[in-house]
Design a protein around this nucleic acid. Sequence first.
DNA 1: CGTGTAAGGAATTCTGACACG
DNA 2: CGTGTAAGGAATTCTGACACG
Lengths: 112, 112
Amino acid sequence: MANDSSYKDKKVITIGIVRDLTGLSERQIRYYEERKLIFPERSPGGSRKYSFADVELLVEIANKIEDGVQTHEIRKEMLRAQKKQNQTDVTRKMIQGQLNAQFGLRKGPSSK
Amino acid sequence: MANDSSYKDKKVITIGIVRDLTGLSERQIRYYEERKLIFPERSPGGSRKYSFADVELLVEIANKIEDGVQTHEIRKEMLRAQKKQNQTDVTRKMIQGQLNAQFGLRKGPSSK
DNA sequence: CGTGTAAGGAATTCTGACACG
DNA sequence: CGTGTAAGGAATTCTGACACG
């Protein structure tokens, strides 16, 4: 019932590789983090770790900035998209709850 | 017609992350490379880069070694599996060729 | 054979700051 | 605002070798 959680979202890529993958400078990558557009994890020693999803997001961010969109605007866009997604999740769960209440599908007290 | 080529096979993970992901020591990881069981790429500076597929393979290798299988045996197993896969590919391509010759599906000179 | 470790060096990454526009 | 850069330091990685069993 959970998501794939497989490779795409695992934070395992260091900044140098991300630089090579995206063509961005390390300065740019760190700056977008400073502007709250990207959220790498950290190794115990403090090195940033990114996922493939992060890499793709970085490219999108860079494209928007090239189009003259400011980081603050990009951030607001992302928050809006985030909120919409959350709402979708809530809706989906509510509907699922309704269905379960009405028909008691799966996960009901099976044995005992 | 080509494969996914997406995330799983991209060599983007440094050895420290692989260590954390697998629980193996860097010594072990480098040794398995020395024994031709694993083939990381290198950064321009010489740092090893692994894929998620490599990470999974390393775990399998480590399990076999725990079972007392020697690296040389593991290597032979891998070569056998490799050969079998190649044969499968060849067979698939031959059959595809037969089909194309018989029925001329797709890729035939369509327009012009 | 498979792995740990200390050794020395090189590559990688980090932060805070100054610069430009 | 977004990015380049030089600066100094710390974390990361590399290789070759000795050790053990």
